[in-house]
């Protein structure tokens, strides 16, 4: 009898310990996930992490402003858990497709400088932020982890294309 109750007690304590350790490690992992280098532990993410660390692409400019992975990639806890499982099982998309973020999300941070941006790009013949196309999605031109492309260049060839920095790809059309 006593052996049995001892064994029950042991099982109970073990179970509690598993739950506590599990919860604690989950908390640690979740906290760790806020650090971009954590994301880079997954090898398919590594190139994206490296483009954030430095280089010509727009994501590196965001890094300079202390914007981290999760500031744009708003993952919920269930999503993170799912990612963890996918990481362990290897069940993820290969190769990764380009992700689009909404204009609303970009403006969550950029609403303050939006008017300045429109004013700054009021070129003599055109304004890409105030054109005949109306309000279009930011990501159609602005890319983070790859070269940005001017959407207008499908039909136009404006002089200001020449003045764009190295984060832009200027080719014939898109």
């Amino acid at each position: 009898m006593s052996r049995l109750s001892f064994s029950r007690k042991t099982v109970l304590i073990a179970a509690v310990l598993v739950v506590v350790i599990g919860a604690a490690s989950a908390a640690v992992l979740l906290k760790a996930s806020e650090n971009p280098s954590f994301c880079a532990t997954c090898h398919v993410i590594r190139p994206y992490y490296e483009s954030w660390l430095g280089g010509d692409l727009q994501v590196a400019r965001h890094a300079e402003a202390d914007v981290k992975c999760l500031d744009c990639h708003h993952q919920s806890i269930p999503e993170k858990i799912h990612e963890g499982i996918a990481f362990v099982t290897g069940n993820y998309e290969k190769p990764l497709k380009e992700r689009d973020f909404s204009r609303e999300q970009c403006l969550e941070c950029h609403w303050e400088d939006w008017e300045q941006t429109v004013a700054a790009t009021d070129f003599e013949m055109s304004n890409p932020h105030d054109s005949h196309l109306g309000e279009i999605e930011c990501h159609l031109c602005h890319k983070m982890h790859r070269e940005s492309q001017v959407y207008c260049a499908q039909c136009h060839d404006f002089e200001w294309f020449e003045t764009l920095d190295k984060s832009w790809k200027i080719a014939d059309g898109i």
Partner: peptide, 13 residues
């Protein structure tokens, strides 16, 4: 950017 997260999103979708 996260592959697995995207999978998750797609799963949710």
């Amino acid at each position: 950017m996260s592959a697995t997260g995207m999978n998750r999103r797609e799963f949710i979708k």
